[in-house]
Design a protein around this nucleic acid. Structure first.
Ligand code: FES
Ligand code: FES
Lengths: 128, 128
DNA sequence: AGAATACCTACTAAAATAGTAGGATTAATA
DNA sequence: TATTAATCCTACTATTTTAGTAGGTATTCT
């Protein structure tokens, strides 16, 4: 079981931005501070922006700011956006291909609830 | 975030065996009941056996039995064996390649604890 | 005009996953 | 002893996912 590194990078970048909130910051700085490829960061931030977690400004003094106060952003939001919906197994999503007796599906459903609870229980503001 | 189907299959197979406990059952039966490929099941059970979750008997009336009472087998055991150690991110395993400020690592560490707690909190006997 | 920034599309190399194929070994039974 | 039904073992392969690169466009400040 693993979350993608994309989720890890996304979370780190958001924490970085949160520390700077509500000032604007550009990707070169973040890239240097976090040791991540600039080009890759650009991709990640396009996703974050599309999902309204950040607001951007183009041009000479451009950069990104969090779209909301870090108090109102949950780790779970970021992670689900970067990694896709939390669903440890098909079962947990509702529809399951495997036609089984499926006593086992309760495991995945319960697990999913717990993961969501944990991840949405953490505010970005707690990570600064 | 996803667990491998291998973990799903493994869990289902173990639940199936648990229902039959403590009688022996062969893979053809399980294969038919669960709609899983026999050849694939053989592979999975080699792993389960290697990790002492099941005991086998070869030959004419061969098959598998759980190595212990379903009361003493945890969902977490099965899943970690089939899927590898639970570690949603490198951070959570202790060593992390990403050299970061790493406020974010607490997310992964907390999450890992919760997942383990949940999965080891479920006994195979509860899934029958 | 120039420079620095975000924005966009497409591609690729590497790793993980899921599963198949073919046979060897073991043990009960006829 | 021959047959048969089961576990056991090694190796391969096709597919998908992941992680990341490359090259170029659009915007805005100075
Ligand atoms: S419903 Fe998903 S394994 Fe049965
Ligand atoms: S320690 Fe893992 S991302 Fe920082």
């Amino acid at each position: 079981m693993k979350f993608s590194t994309r989720a890890g990078y996304g979370l780190r970048a958001m924490v970085n931005l949160a520390k700077n909130h509500p000032r604007r910051k550009n990707l070169q700085e973040i890239s240097k501070e976090e040791g991540m490829s600039l080009k890759y960061l650009e991709q990640l931030f396009r996703i974050l922006k599309k999902n309204n977690l950040v607001v951007s400004r183009k041009g000479r003094v451009g950069g990104y700011v969090l779209a909301k106060n870090p108090k109102f952003i949950r780790a779970g939001e970021i992670i689900e956006i970067m990694d896709g919906p939390i669903a440890p197994m098909e079962c947990a999503g509702g529809r399951c291909d495997m036609k089984c007796s499926c006593a086992s599906s309760v495991v995945w459903i319960k697990l999913r609830q717990q993961i969501k609870k944990t991840l949405y229980g953490i505010k970005l503001s707690e990570l600064i």
